[in-house]
């Protein structure tokens, strides 16, 4: 079980956010808000701006216009965010165990927490193998376990079930449920995925960097927009 986070009325406000790369529009006047204990899902085709959306929310890319504001949280304006992007963010020369130790060391959390998560999602057996020798599915598991190891208030996940087999996906979904109950805010992106949609409190359909449709309850009307 994941430990409960202290309730801090954490809230995210995204206002009129646009992002340009040169003259390419990646995001266009995005508005949305979310708070602790929610699961927000952005769905959209490849190139619809999902990854940029997540990086902007995580503070890894600065928007060209508009603002991302955090209120509440452990530190004002800067909650503990863990981001798992397209890339796993792993060093080929280090083992999963070493990654978890470093994450726990930097976040001042108990390193056993991350190891327990690694075990639960079926990657405990590779804890001592260099990450450079792991398969894509295993790398994804290690990256997710490390994200949990830092005791995040916000999880920002790009295609969290990508490269996972059914058993792995089931274990990860179960963890998401626990994290939400513990008060964590999860913001994820994926091309249409029924398993994620089923647990989403809010779904944003992105097309060419714009929010085409936003729905606040699971599987309500979003089927009409087939973007997957």
């Amino acid at each position: 079980m994941l430990r409960d986070l202290p309730r801090t009325h954490l809230r995210l406000e995204v206002r009129h956010v646009s992002k340009l790369f040169g003259t390419t529009v990646a995001l266009w006047q995005l508005d949305f808000s979310a708070s602790e204990g929610q699961f927000v899902l952005a769905i959209g085709a490849n190139g619809s701006g999902k990854s940029t959306f997540l990086r902007v929310v995580a503070g890894l890319t600065s928007p060209t216009a508009g603002a991302v504001r955090w209120t509440g949280g452990s530190a004002p304006g800067r909650p503990r965010i863990a981001h798992v992007g397209h890339a796993s963010g792993l060093y080929d020369g280090l083992t999963p165990f070493e990654h978890l130790m470093l994450a726990a060391r930097l976040a001042h959390t108990d390193p056993m927490g991350g190891l327990a998560v690694l075990e639960r999602i079926g990657a405990g057996s590779v804890a001592g193998v260099s990450c450079g020798r792991l398969s894509a599915g295993m790398r994804r598991r290690v990256a997710l376990a490390r994200a949990f190891a830092s005791g995040p208030e916000v999880l920002v996940l790009d295609e969290p079930l990508g490269a996972l087999d059914d058993a792995g996906a089931a274990a990860v979904l179960e963890l998401f449920g626990e994290a939400i109950r513990a008060g964590c805010l999860i913001i994820a992106a994926a091309p249409s995925d029924a398993r994620l949609r089923a647990i989403a409190d809010q779904t944003l359909a992105l097309v060419d960097g714009r929010v085409l449709r936003s729905v606040t309850s699971p599987s309500d009307g979003i089927e009409a927009i087939d973007v997957g």
Partner: peptide, 8 residues
């Protein structure tokens, strides 16, 4: 020129 793209 770049900002002009951002005008509503």
């Amino acid at each position: 020129a770049e900002q002009a793209l951002l005008m509503p």
